[in-house]
Design a protein around this nucleic acid. Sequence first.
DNA 1: TCGTGAATGTCGATC
DNA 2: GATCGACGTTCACGA
Lengths: 250, 250
Amino acid sequence: MTASERHRAARADTVVDPDPDAAAERVADGIEEGALVTVFGRCTVEYDGRASSTLGPGDRHVMLKPDGSILVHTDEGQQPVNWQPPGCTQDAELADGDLRIRSHRSTPDERLDVRFERVTQVSAFAVDDASELAITGTEEDLRERILDDPDLLEADFTPLATERQTSAGAVDIYGEDHSGRTVAVELKRKRVGPDAVGQLRRYVDALERDLHDDAELRGMLVAPSVTDRARELLERNGLEFVSLTPETGE
Amino acid sequence: MTASERHRAARADTVVDPDPDAAAERVADGIEEGALVTVFGRCTVEYDGRASSTLGPGDRHVMLKPDGSILVHTDEGQQPVNWQPPGCTQDAELADGDLRIRSHRSTPDERLDVRFERVTQVSAFAVDDASELAITGTEEDLRERILDDPDLLEADFTPLATERQTSAGAVDIYGEDHSGRTVAVELKRKRVGPDAVGQLRRYVDALERDLHDDAELRGMLVAPSVTDRARELLERNGLEFVSLTPETGE
DNA sequence: TCGTGAATGTCGATC
DNA sequence: GATCGACGTTCACGA
């Protein structure tokens, strides 16, 4: 382990009940050092950008990440009450005697302003994380499962392409059936509603135009299941459904 | 201020570099007290439920909320790398000498397992937050703007209902034009793609069936703007577009 | 509980 | 930078 790596290894610098100016300095230093900074205290939050929002005084947990993102969490909900995405500028400073943390980005122009009337704790964490998340059960898994064994859709189905472009977007799997009819396949990893049927229909319509083909063209939705409304829509549009999950067995 | 209110007021109990058993006890106590608990350290994460995922060792910030949600954040991204929604059970315990935090819910059956090989810091925050987020610039604002002044869509447009049910779902605004033709209006707060056109088309188709009406039926998409492909789809389906934002002025 | 659609959706790929 | 579709989307609302 090199000195710089040791410097990066999990450390935490924490101050409790800091003065506003001490808090501002800690936060600014943490940002500067590329640390993950958290602030807990009583604050108000203003957001203006794609929409606008105001949040009155309350105790919240604010997280500033070295990639420029910022998250404001209350004690409820999986989602932050306010936030900014990665790539934003961050700054912490003393404003009228209080700690103020601001975030800004352009395109679109968006600003977040967190003002603390009391700071309970500020922490700066040095993060060392090289691992990547490995996930299974995705639409990609469903696609691979079908390409490995095309008969899962129906006997003698032959995939010809994936992500085949049409004038309405890319078809997940493009192939032909036992009699040579073209089949457009739309994949969904979980139970689907009307939106997925609309998507498949757009692709089939586009293929009919693109191929200016009088031959029959089949559209097939592949998912674990469909809602009643989606099934109606499928029938009305002459589209088919095959039940299949991303995971084998189970 | 009563004793219980004082207990709720923003406080933080923090331990640095705790032993695994001390960490487990702190986390368990925090959960028990209804605190917002954060843990920073080197950990691995396993998830199994709607999908499955594995995350190798790295420094992460874990937040447990009193509503049962849990968030695992790396130093990158606005989104947590792993999580559980509100309503999950939470528990912290010593497992093979390490701190292990688990979360579980039913329907669907989902589990999250965070195992720490090192705990850098544990904090328990008492949160007092009575404020609600006030937001503007939503689709609801767009609807109100139109209902206040229906001529924004076109001269002599008359709204008759909002959220009018059809066999394909609810139409945002249902009304009639100067000549008494029925108009189905779909609202979007921001620039739209092909999906919104498909949605409007489903409503118009459903109304044509529901009303078994030979009279002309208009479908109108109202949004700040549309993509090229969405505009093509609109024209192909005989649907109309009106440019309008949720916010007045600007 | 399930279905449906909004969202400051976020994120990644692709053009 | 814009578009498009997946996502363990999350979330609120209604049936």
